[in-house]
């Protein structure tokens, strides 16, 4: 796991965090989630400019034999999507917290992010739920 800055995690394994370079919020799926999925072959991305409620379905990730839904980790507005994923969906496997992010977003209520799990709690959550 290779990431800077503060990341927040949802129970459905999405993250939201501030990118240290651009100082903007991004969302993506966790390293644990990508390893469970296996090789990602296609990503159905959310719509740019649209707002989504927390836990609303914003997209899908496909491996060869499965489809997983991506849920919004918070109330957000999509600023731009990571269109690199159209041609190189494997970025999600290689760098889920970096180049494999899903979209750049604006949290509607940044204070609400605190109800999500931080890095440590998420680690514990994984262990307790999936081992």
């Amino acid at each position: 796991m290779n990431k800077d800055g503060l990341f927040y995690f949802s129970k459905s394994h999405e993250w939201i965090g501030k990118d240290s370079n651009s100082n903007k919020y991004r969302i993506g799926i966790s390293d644990f989630a990508q390893s469970e999925l296996g090789d990602v072959v296609y990503v159905f991305l959310p719509e740019s400019g649209k707002t989504y409620r927390k836990d609303e379905k914003i997209g899908e990730i496909e491996s060869v034999k499965s489809v997983s839904e991506i849920y919004s980790p918070a109330d957000i507005k999509i600023i731009s999507i990571n269109s690199n994923l159209n041609d190189t969906p494997e970025l999600i496997n290689h760098d889920p917290f970096g180049a494999g992010y899903i979209a750049e977003v604006e949290p509607l209520n940044p204070a609400d992010l605190n109800i999500l799990m931080d890095d440590n709690s998420y680690r514990i959550f994984i262990v307790s739920h999936h081992e």
């Binding site: 090789d39 072959v41 060869v64």
Partner: peptide, 13 residues
């Protein structure tokens, strides 16, 4: 077999 394990990731990507 005629061919080995198929690269289904490539086939779908």
């Amino acid at each position: 077999t005629k061919i080995g394990r198929v690269n289904e990731v490539l086939a779908n990507k």
